[in-house]
Design a binder for these strands. Structure first.
Length: 425
RNA sequence: GGAGAGCUGGCCGAGUGGUCGAAGGCGCAGCACUGGAAAUGCUGUAUAGGGGCAACUCUAUCGAGGGUUCGAAUCCCUCGCUCUCCGCCA
């Protein structure tokens, strides 16, 4: 959420910064609302001060022996009543304005950071660097073909169990998925991340706090009986891990590595990536998350990205890093680096991690502060996939595929999977 | 699912209509004492939004919302949540 003060004092800045995202917004009306609300608040609190004064006076008089039913007290009561009525009117109007302001403010995305490259669509994203040597041979199989040969998962039967876009991992496939999760968590915790296994059902306040609600309700699965939703990413529960808290400055940064299954409705993506592990309603992900001091978030962004990259390197998976342009960064992000892994079978780079710095955007929505001297400040939050597990498996299968149909696994993974290569059982 | 209890500051806990943002304790910070520390003593220690260069000050907040009242943490209503016992269950 954006700062209300900015709406009052510099709405043009919001308009121009959101303009960089390709979003035309007119804030004149909202500014009027914000200013009027502030004015009413001043007026109201002044009246309340007067009312409080009268209330105290009545108490003092009665205590001093003045007749509670006498004229003097009756006069004060009348004054108190008059004020009460005025306050009620102001309060109602003020509340109405506050609600409008807040509701509107919750729908605006974060302002891109000044370093975020300007652009109109994903073609304006900038490649920062790449790592590894992508395989470019002819005739390489896509991961679902390899998986079918090795019998790693079953999508057809998953429709029977649930729906399309679900997968049931079987045998070596299930083992590989589990091994990858363990491997990633071990890697991150060895670098000081605190492991977290959060609830995957989250309430509306949590989704609002990290930015999914109110705008992206359609992307989430909902348990309508209970004000609970299936989390689309561990970013949601981990943000709320410290919602409404003040984190002592000497504890920052807090760094968490959270494994969770993730659930997304994928509305509007009919027909895209219908095969394999790329786009599913349920997938596993290990998420990195930082609560950082506001002065440290830029370095933190570089570090969280490096920590996500470390997984790809350890798994010997070639990738590139994109600096997403203003048109392509997510709702809560100020700036985002995407990691794209090379899929030799598809002969394309695919997003496997998105590392974002959100500034105080989520912290304001979630009321997560730190204390510096006397002042409380909003912390900065960062998140990055480390990594999306299904897509990692896809990349491993396509990258490690051999002409005999087997798949050679990277060395680091051998202890986690229990074999050096996958072959038909 | 049934029955009951409760929700107060970082934590524990007092407070059943009047000057209460809230006793007391713990914790934390500063100061004193000490060679240093412990112990002890003193002082300070909520959040949000306004005003002021500042000292400071105003408003709101005792689970949430509404009501009664000149005045509510305290009385009334609604909702939410937590806990305990029983039942069921991994």
């Amino acid at each position: 959420m954006l700062d209300q003060r900015l709406v009052r004092e510099n709405p043009d800045k919001i308009a121009s910064e959101l303009g960089r995202r390709g979003k035309a917004v007119d804030l004149t009306r909202l500014q009027v609302i914000a200013l009027k609300q502030r004015k009413l608040e001043e007026e109201r609190s002044g009246l309340q001060a007067e009312g409080n004064r009268i209330g105290k006076e009545v108490g003092q008089k009665i205590k001093a022996g003045v007749d509670p039913k006498g004229e003097e007290v009756a006069e004060l009561r009348q004054q108190g009543n008059a004020i009460k009525q005025k306050v009620a009117v102001l309060e109602e109007e003020e509340k109405h304005l506050s609600t409008q302001l807040k509701e509107q403010l919750l729908t605006y995305p974060n302002l891109p950071s000044t370093d975020c490259p300007d652009g109109k669509d994903e073609t304006d994203n900038i490649e920062l660097r790449s790592w590894g040597k992508p395989r470019h041979e002819q005739g390489l199989a896509e991961h679902w073909e390899i998986a079918e040969h090795l019998n790693l998962f079953d999508t057809e039967r998953s429709v029977r169990i649930a729906q399309s876009r679900f997968v049931t991992l079987i045998g070596q496939g299930a083992r590989l998925e589990r091994g990858l999760i363990n491997f990633m968590l071990d890697l991150h915790t060895s670098k000081g991340y605190k492991e977290v296994l959060p609830p995957v059902l989250v309430n509306s306040a949590s989704l609002t706090g990290s930015g999914q609600l109110p705008k992206f309700a359609d992307d989430c699965f909902r348990c309508s009986e209970d004000d609970l939703w299936l989390t689309p990413t561990a970013e949601v529960p981990v943000t709320s891990l410290h919602r409404d808290e003040i984190i002592p400055a000497d504890q920052l940064p807090l760094r968490y590595a959270a494994y969770s299954p993730c659930f997304r409705r994928e509305a509007g993506s009919y027909g895209r990536d219908t095969r394999g592990l790329i786009r599913l309603h349920q997938f596993n992900k290990v998420e990195l998350y930082w609560f950082a001091h506001p002065d440290q978030s830029a370095e933190a962004h570089a570090q969280i990205t490096a920590d996500a990259e470390a997984v790809l390197r350890a798994l010997e998976l070639p990738y590139r890093v994109l600096d997403l342009c203003t048109a392509d960064i997510g709702f809560s992000a100020q700036r985002t680096y995407d990691l794209e892994v090379w899929l030799p079978g598809a002969a394309a780079y695919r997003e496997i991690s998105s590392c974002s710095v959100c500034g105080d955007f989520q912290a304001r929505r979630s009321a997560i502060r730190t204390k510096e001297g006397k002042a409380t400040k909003l912390v900065h939050t960062l998140n990055g996939s480390g990594l999306a597990v299904g897509r990692t498996m896809a990349a491993l299968l396509e990258t490690g595929q051999q002409s005999d149909g087997s798949v050679v696994l990277p060395k680091m993974l051998v202890p986690y999977v229990g074999c050096e290569r996958l072959q038909p059982e």
